[in-house]
Computed example of a mutant assay.
Amino acid sequence: MRVRTEAKRESILETAAEVFMEMGFERASMSEIAARMGGSKATLYSYFPSKEELFFAVVHHKVGEEVEPAFQDLPSKADEEPRALLTRLGERLLVAVTAPEAIAVRRMVIAVASKSSIGQQFWQYGPQQLHDAMASYLERATEAGRLNVRDPSAAAQHILALFSSEIDWRWIFGLQNTFTRAEIKQAVARAVDVFLAAYGR
């Protein structure tokens, strides 16, 4: 009986990330990943039952581990001063999603979104969870008298879109692939200004 280990799982994720980045989601195969690991497909499948599950595990490994902690307890911070909280959150989010591997992942998803359910799964796996946590925070912050939000779901879409509004179009069209901390801080500061002009007290 094979013994699964965390070290082996980490090794699989790193190898899979290399293959996905190099070949894209469609061309990457479990056979290629297993071959580069120097192991068998049976071992690979014992950790990840499908290529889709392995892909989303890679996404979490490379992006989700940086983003999720900032959002997990967000609703509990409704009493905090919104500007400082949203600024910290926006900066952490943009640092994570503008990392080269994160941009490569999103490009892969965009490339196959019209041909498969990967786009929908990606939304449910990551962005939807961020949206839901943000909507819950905005509702509670309004109840606490910190904000003035009538539609938390729509406002959550607004702030998340504002965070990336100065960044996304640059990498989507290949105009810029790396972003400095200064660029991120400036983009987030302006996003929070616009959001609070609409929803602040």
Results as ranks from 00 to 15, higher is better:
59 V>M: 12
160 L>R: 07
73 D>M: 07
81 E>K: 11
135 A>W: 02
111 A>F: 06
145 G>L: 09
93 L>T: 03
131 H>W: 02
162 L>K: 02
133 A>Q: 09
92 R>E: 15
70 A>S: 06
125 Y>N: 14
84 A>N: 02
147 L>V: 14
168 D>C: 00
136 S>N: 09
118 I>Q: 10
131 H>Q: 05
158 H>G: 06
119 G>H: 09
149 V>E: 07
160 L>M: 14
71 F>D: 12
95 V>M: 13
117 S>I: 05
142 T>F: 14
85 L>W: 02
83 R>F: 06
127 P>R: 02
125 Y>A: 15
79 D>C: 09
159 I>E: 09
87 T>L: 08
154 A>N: 10
64 G>P: 06
141 A>I: 04
81 E>V: 07
77 K>F: 10
87 T>I: 02
110 I>C: 00
114 S>A: 15
111 A>R: 15
67 V>N: 01
95 V>G: 04
66 E>D: 12
92 R>M: 05
88 R>E: 15
171 W>Q: 11
124 Q>R: 11
73 D>H: 10
136 S>F: 05
149 V>G: 08
78 A>W: 05
140 R>Y: 05
63 V>H: 04
66 E>C: 03
116 S>W: 12
160 L>N: 04
118 I>N: 09
73 D>I: 01
84 A>D: 06
119 G>P: 04
99 A>L: 08
100 P>R: 06
118 I>F: 14
116 S>P: 10
105 V>Q: 03
130 L>H: 01
75 P>C: 13
160 L>G: 08
80 E>D: 13
127 P>T: 06
84 A>T: 06
135 A>R: 01
171 W>F: 14
86 L>E: 02
160 L>H: 02
122 F>P: 02
145 G>F: 07
127 P>D: 07
148 N>L: 13
89 L>F: 01
130 L>A: 07
150 R>Y: 13
123 W>F: 11
133 A>F: 00
99 A>Y: 11
98 T>N: 13
139 E>K: 14
160 L>D: 04
167 I>F: 03
141 A>W: 01
140 R>F: 09
149 V>I: 15
77 K>N: 03
123 W>S: 05
162 L>W: 04
68 E>N: 08
98 T>Q: 13
135 A>N: 07
112 V>G: 10
113 A>Y: 04
86 L>A: 07
106 R>Y: 14
173 F>M: 15
163 F>Q: 02
67 V>T: 03
161 A>L: 11
75 P>H: 05
103 I>V: 15
108 M>L: 11
146 R>W: 00
174 G>Q: 12
157 Q>D: 04
148 N>I: 12
134 M>V: 14
111 A>Y: 07
142 T>E: 13
136 S>T: 14
61 H>M: 06
142 T>P: 10
152 P>G: 06
172 I>D: 04
73 D>P: 00
172 I>W: 00
132 D>Y: 01
57 A>M: 06
143 E>S: 12
64 G>T: 04
145 G>S: 06
97 V>H: 05
140 R>C: 12
65 E>Y: 02
137 Y>N: 09
77 K>R: 15
124 Q>W: 02
113 A>N: 10
154 A>F: 14
118 I>V: 15
88 R>L: 09
68 E>D: 11
103 I>W: 10
126 G>P: 02
131 H>I: 00
163 F>P: 03
90 G>V: 07
130 L>P: 00
118 I>A: 12
81 E>W: 12
60 H>C: 11
135 A>I: 06
105 V>P: 00
61 H>A: 14
165 S>H: 14
